[in-house]
Amino acid sequence: MNFNEIKSKLSKYTVGIAGCGGLGSNCAVSLARVGIGKLVIADFDVIEESNLNRQYFFYDQIGKEKVFALKENILKINPNISVEAIKVKLNPEEIIKYYKNCDIIVEAFDKAEMKEMIVETVLQNFPDKYLICGVGLAGYGKNELIKTEKFGKLIIVGDRENESNENNPPLAPRVCAVSNLMANVVLEILLGEEYENKS
């Protein structure tokens, strides 16, 4: 497939991204660059200076709401895609409401309990939807530990062991690597055989 064919295929699909921090902002930007049809992005938080070590925002956006700043940045890169930006702290009911029409859902939360919540919600309510999750991305180096593992339609990207904390912070190189591997899994699914006849 050449890029125009890829772009034309991707333009038919909607990807939901839950969280607009390190994983969500970088994954969304990559999907926007290659021409995904629509992104549904959600986050409740405001940009802080400390976020700029890995999140796709700019210094002059500090203090803005992440979800609206991300929409702005996405449209600066690719004005041809549709972005639905929702300012909300997602709970199971809202995940069902906002993501039910998405072809694929990307989990891009920071906290383990939120990751657990969305995985349970999606597995219970949308067993036929693919859910891509980022688990284990803190620190630096250790490229060789990052992997993609499939558990049916639940796909986990990351090293599954490096939790972020005060002394093992999430940093751009590793977070962006994982978020882009997640975007790469989205492409693999949407451009694969299974989606050949779906629209």
Binding site: G19, L23, D110, A112, E113, V135, G136, L154, S164
Partner: peptide, 10 residues
């Protein structure tokens, strides 16, 4: 059986 350990970071 799948047992997946969720950890923070994003």
């Amino acid at each position: 059986v799948d047992i997946i350990h969720m950890i923070s970071g994003g």
